[in-house]
């Protein structure tokens, strides 16, 4: 009798596909915190729009560049900034404290005000999808 290896092979493929590499692309855990803080629905287009908006000649892209999947450069010091897109940099958005630190600083510098929880959820979702 010829043994049927099909189930083993299917299981093997499934295991390989669902491995840790896939997990890195999952939405950041921090979005859960925003949900707990009252964000019912995220607006990915608003996230994108905020990223590319310009206020007083300042934009997220001033330092991060036009393409979040590529490295940016600090507008003043020239120091390299690693890509923000999760697809290009799996290290991003792993540390809740770090996310909040940079949102606070950068929203104030770029938009001249703090970002709302909704806006942060939208931007985070958009960057994670890139």
């Amino acid at each position: 009798m010829k043994p049927d290896l099909t189930p083993s092979i299917c299981l093997l493929i499934a295991v390989v596909l669902s491995g840790p590499a896939r997990a890195a692309q999952d939405p950041p855990r921090h979005l859960q915190t925003y949900r707990q803080q009252g964000v019912d629905q995220v607006d990915i287009q608003n996230g994108r729009q905020l990223w590319y908006s310009t206020v007083n000649q300042r934009s997220c892209t001033s330092c991060h560049g036009d393409n979040p999947a590529k490295a940016g450069k600090h507008v003043k010091t020239g120091k390299a900034i690693q890509p923000m897109a999760l697809s290009a940099n799996a290290e991003r958005f792993q540390d809740a404290k770090k996310i909040e630190k940079w949102f606070l600083r950068n929203c104030k510098w770029t938009l001249g005000r703090e970002c709302s929880t909704q806006e942060k959820a939208d931007i985070l979702t958009w960057l994670s999808s890139q």
Binding site: S8, L12, V15, P20
Partner: peptide, 17 residues
């Protein structure tokens, strides 16, 4: 051989996780 391969992939995968 098939089962051995499967076992090693599973072990590696869990290790990775």
């Amino acid at each position: 051989m098939g089962y051995a391969l499967l076992a090693s992939v599973l072990t590696f995968s869990f290790y990775g996780m």
